[in-house]
Amino acid sequence: MWGGRVQVLFRLWGLRSAGVPGRRLLSCSAASEKGSSSLRCWNCGGPGGPGPGDGFFCQQCRALQPPDPTRDYFSLMDCNRSFRVDTTKLQNRFQQLQRLVHPDFFSQRSQTEKDFSEKHSTIVNDAYKTLLAPLSRGLYLVS
Rank of each mutant, 00 (worst) to 15 (best):
Cys79Glu: 13
Trp13His: 08
Ser37Pro: 03
Arg137Gly: 07
Val101Lys: 02
His120Gln: 06
Phe116His: 15
Thr122Cys: 09
Asp68Lys: 04
Leu132Val: 02
Ser117Thr: 10
Phe83Lys: 00
Leu64Asp: 05
Ser121Thr: 09
Leu25His: 05
Gly49Val: 06
Val6Ile: 15
Ala63Glu: 11
Leu9Phe: 10
Leu76Thr: 05
Ser143Leu: 01
Asn43Cys: 15
Arg81Val: 06
Leu97Trp: 05
Gly55Asp: 12
Leu100His: 05
Phe57Leu: 13
Lys34Pro: 04
Cys41Ile: 09
Met1Glu: 09
Ile123Arg: 04
Gly19His: 03
Gly3Asp: 08
Leu139Lys: 01
Ala127Trp: 00
Cys28Glu: 14
Pro50Ile: 02
Gln7Ile: 00
Leu25Trp: 03
Gln98Arg: 12
Phe56Pro: 02
Tyr140Phe: 10
Lys119Asn: 08
Ser37Ala: 12
Gln60Val: 11
Gln91Phe: 06
Glu118Thr: 12
Arg81Lys: 08
Lys89Gly: 01
Asp86Cys: 03
Tyr73Ile: 02
Gln65Leu: 06
Gly35Thr: 15
Gly22Lys: 01
Gln108Thr: 13
Ala133Trp: 14
Tyr128Thr: 03
Thr112Phe: 02
Arg11Leu: 05
Ser27Leu: 12
Ala127Asp: 02
Gln95Met: 13
Cys58Ser: 06
Gly138Asp: 12
Arg71His: 07
Tyr73Ala: 12
Gly46Asn: 08
Arg16Ala: 11
Cys79Val: 05
Gln59Tyr: 02
Ser121Asp: 13
Trp2Lys: 08
